[in-house]
Amino acid sequence: MLSRRAGLSRAALLAPALAIILAVGVLPLGITLVYSVLTPGTYGGVSWAFSLDAYVQFLFERDIFDDTLQFNGAYLSIFARSIGLAFGATLGALILGFPTAWFIATRPREQRNLWLFLITLPFWTNLLIRTYAMLLIIRDEGIVNLSLMQVGLISEPLSILYTDTAVFIGLIYAYLPFMVLPLYASLEKIDMRLLEAGYDLYAGRWKVLRHVIVPLARPGIVAGCVLVFIPGLGAYITPELLGGGKKLMIGNMIAMQFGSSRNWPFGSAAALILMALVVLVLLAHARAAGREGRAHG
């Protein structure tokens, strides 16, 4: 009797949050799934006729004249580019983030929170504005090029903006905090006496790093990579501004289908494929983390 009342009040407490997210977060995914097997409407939207064209279109092009299918690698290459860029950015963020996290973890205890705060603060400022700020800096007339020319290192501005390099830099810049935080959490836990043991057993600095620190930081490394790779893969703003809308990533391509291209079914299909990729990465991570937990527990 009492417990049923408790169950009812619990359900009532959960209802608003679950209702909102189910309605605006989960239900739309179902609609996306349905839309992905419909036919595009003439002026955007869909017309309610079943078709797998959206998925076929992903790999093939239908010839307008004889209706035959021909292989078309354009979309596949956008996916490949996106995966490549996200992967590269992840690697870059790891290379920069690991020393940074180690540096913070080896500060005196009372300084660490300040450093962490400095790393997290940019994350809470608008990504669009941060990307715009990056754009200002790496433009041909930006401060980077101006200073390099001033000191005479280069005579002409490096044309970084609207290239893959720009997107790559932008992605690292956007998601570096995601790498540093989990890395720090792992590194901070390492018992520093293990280093002494390493040195004591004739390992040099790099060997201690490779054989002691990196293996112990593995959970943090994996978590950081997942946290950078996933938003990097679905990035929209960064390639939009720094890639100049020419160097497309999946995110822009999807958005485009709902805008100028007016192919909602194809956009829906692409979104589902992107989501499938993300879920795959998350599942792999969860399994790896589970194994890690069991091995240590």
Binding site: V24, G25, L27, P28, L29, I31, T32, Y35, I230, P231, L233, G234, Y236, I250, G251, I254, A255, Q257, F258, W264, G267, S268, A271, L272, L274, M275, V278, L282
Partner: peptide
């Protein structure tokens, strides 16, 4: 938090 924002965006647009 888990779904890429662009996916949420177009899905919500569809709904």
């Amino acid at each position: 938090l888990v779904i890429p924002e662009i996916v949420t965006a177009i899905a919500t647009l569809s709904l």
